[in-house]
């Protein structure tokens, strides 16, 4: 009797141990290593935690964090809309695809950060420029993946639906876009991580607020614990964005994962 009751508890404990063990050990090692030496660049974790609360749970949250995240969200959403709409148009029209493909390949190959100086020249410094920077880097993975996805739709599927007279918007909504969605989601995933990088870079360059600006400011004024707290916050944002993407992907692609499971047997 007792053993049966104990087993799930032990199992949960083991899972917890695996998940938290290494991070706990790493934190402990860090604390021990920084406790003795008064290393300037590597403050003990407790100091960083204090700095974290002090720095970010105050006006900085509304002045730096929220505007940064707002620009990130605006840039990414805009990229997704532009990328999916233009990608669908290009992917379904053969001559358009042939016409634009070499140019698109080139634009994708340009490292998005070099557009920061270009856009700074053209648009000046401001929110428009910062959002434009994010869009200029994020739009390509979504767009090119949409083109690939739309082009790669199973011909049996398209021909069947055509012979059932599923056309135009109906076909887009129920045949083409769902079939392309695994590819599109892969593009969106790339778009999110590029977007985060560009959000930080655009603020490191030309800004007087925002997460990227704050972290560089702390570094230049040798506020080391605060700088570390900023790095931690950026890490947490990255993890949160990845987590949200994971949830969204599971919702959008649940049919696809189910199909793969079945195919694997």
């Amino acid at each position: 009797m007792r053993r049966i009751r104990l087993r799930p508890v032990l199992g949960a404990l083991r899972t917890l141990g695996y998940a938290a063990g290494l991070p706990a050990l790493a934190l402990l090692a860090w604390a021990l290593a920084t406790d003795r030496s008064a290393s300037l660049y590597f403050p003990p974790p407790a100091t960083i935690a204090d700095a974290f609360v002090e720095t970010w749970f105050g006006p900085a949250f509304t002045e730096d964090v929220l505007p940064s995240l707002g620009r990130f969200a605006a840039g990414v959403l805009l990229s997704m809309v532009i990328g999916i709409v233009a990608g669908t148009a290009i992917g379904t029209t053969r001559w358009l695809r042939d016409l634009l493909e070499p140019m698109l390949e080139f634009f994708r190959a340009v490292p998005p950060v070099v557009l920061v100086p270009v856009l700074m020249l053209m648009l000046g410094v401001g929110d428009t420029m910062r959002i434009a920077v994010i869009v200029s880097g994020c739009v390509w993975p979504v767009l090119l993946n949409t083109v690939e996805g739309v082009r790669g739709v199973d011909t049996v599927l398209t021909e069947t639906s055509r012979s059932y007279r599923v056309r135009g918007g109906l076909s887009l909504r129920y045949v083409v876009l769902p079939a392309a969605s695994p590819q599109i989601m892969a593009g969106i995933r790339l778009c999110l991580s590029i977007g985060l990088i560009l959000m930080v870079i655009s603020e490191m360059f030309a800004s007087s607020s925002g997460l990227g600006y704050r972290i560089v400011y702390f570094q230049r004024s040798f506020m080391i614990a605060q700088m570390w707290s900023g790095i931690v916050l950026l890490g947490l944002v990255g993890v949160a964005v990845a987590g949200l993407y994971g949830i969204a992907e599971r919702r959008v692609l649940h049919w696809y994962h189910g199909m793969r499971e079945v195919a694997r047997g």
Partner: peptide
Amino acid sequence: LRPIPSVAIIPLAVL
């Protein structure tokens, strides 16, 4: 660790 944007460590690297 994986999703931490690598640009976040620029200030640390410079220090």
